[in-house]
Design a binder for these strands. Structure first.
Lengths: 248, 248
DNA sequence: GGAATACTTTATGTATACATTATATCCCAC
DNA sequence: GTGGGATATAATGTATACATAAAGTATTCC
């Protein structure tokens, strides 16, 4: 079989995990719908053993839910679940920001974050924001959050933030929807940038409490924006995808 | 084979998971030590497939770490890791307490918590505290924390707290060590009880900010106590076990 | 006609065989 | 004597076969 070189090295388990995740977040499987191993085998093309491993990991990731009698189903999220997840993540990131400030990070450590913010600035300058620019923004924004978490130098916290982010960032699709749901998307992005810069400043000046407060406020605002966006839409099924933009 | 009835119904995967967890937290395997599937098969008596599932789940639980080239090793924790985990849990529980207060729980919902606290009162009244009473305390204390988390009515938060608690509460052994490490254990237990009562009161009176602040302070104090206890001991290998008492 | 039971089909849990990769040891060459 | 390479061994990744349990359907009896 002719496979792309990049795909040859990864394990079947990972390949199955990626394929199934994409299937779930793209809406190929509805929330609450059961997914059998045989189905997964047919979709992914790998055998049952790696498929099972992938299913277990997706369960841990929060996309699937174990059925007591056996097997898995696609997890369903309420609007409240998503909003709580965003606030949860904000709380965790607030702690990370405080740790970073208290633990004393050097200006050099903050360089990657600042560079990330500068790149985002370049993107949001254009108006209106193109689809490509928006995708880049999402990637850069995620990068900023990862960098911030790592700045805490706390493996347990980093791990937890990573898990808490799985849900809001689950979907690589759904950008269009998220974007169209927020006519004033650009304005929101600019405010988010502002928050990020303040956080970096607070960390640099060793103001732990302020850094923490800003990140929490940032998340609360994101949750509020999502709530507003949802008022204009009724596609609650695709909430994981929607939650993405509000995770700014 | 003659097996106890209770064990007959659980899956081989769960059985293997329990056996391996016990092996790890009891110190049968040293932190950093690699655990091969064959080893696990010999220890648990089940075949490789369920053993592998158990290993994956234990990795998610935080007790094992995946080795890039394949396989798993027992995760090693630094003192800082444990202290951070305690503060992390406190932060999450603070959020849970605030949610509970803001979301408006009835007095009836708080009944189980109060009853739990009353039972603990009965235990810590005796002096000195017996080994059995201490074990009961640990179980009741864990119950209180679970009940508090559930009071938030937020599945994502409950899930996250559950995961954050896995490490501090990992060990069912190690009680003796934890107790002996803290000569003034009873005093600490009493202070913890005080905190818990204040939290319940704050939730009942809808004081979200206060409820959150207390839980965070509670965790910080627990971390401080653990730090003090560690000054008298050098068994950093058994940190997961030790962290237990400080999670009060 | 409806409900209960039995049977069939399907799915998951488990075990094991096979293949591939990593690692360790040993030998040979420098 | 040391370093590198090759071979052998062991461990993980993968696939599949088998068994058991669950679920759905059909048939029969009330």
């Amino acid at each position: 079989m002719a496979e792309r070189e990049a795909e040859r090295s990864v394990s079947q388990t990972v390949r199955a995990q990626l394929a199934l995740r994409e299937l779930i977040v793209s809406g190929g499987l509805r929330p609450g719908e059961r997914i059998s191993e045989l189905q997964a085998v047919e979709v992914t093309g790998v055998s049952r053993t790696p498929v099972r491993m992938a299913l277990v990991r997706l369960e841990e990731e929060g996309l699937l839910e174990a059925i007591p009698s056996g097997g898995f189903m696609v997890k369903a999220f309420s609007e409240r679940d998503i909003l709580d997840s965003i606030e949860l993540r904000g709380t965790l990131e607030g702690l990370a920001a405080r740790f970073a400030a208290e633990r004393g990070v050097s200006s050099r450590d903050l360089e990657p974050l600042k560079q990330c913010l500068d790149e985002i600035d370049g993107l949001v300058r254009q108006e209106p924001i193109s689809m490509e620019a928006f995708s880049s923004y999402v990637a850069l924004n995620a990068r900023f959050h990862v960098l911030l978490a790592e700045l805490s130098r706390s493996p347990p916290l980093i791990r937890q933030i990573d898990r808490a982010s799985a849900l809001p960032f689950a979907s690589p699709s759904g950008f269009v929807m998220a974007q169209s749901a927020l006519p004033e998307a650009r304005q929101i992005l600019l405010i988010g940038q502002d928050h990020h810069r303040v956080v970096v400043d607070a960390i640099e000046n060793r103001e732990g409490a302020r850094a923490e407060a800003i990140m929490r406020e940032h998340a609360r605002l994101a949750a509020r924006n999502l709530r507003l966006a949802l008022r204009n839409r009724t596609h609650l099924d695709l909430l994981p995808a929607l939650a993405l933009i509000s995770a700014g």
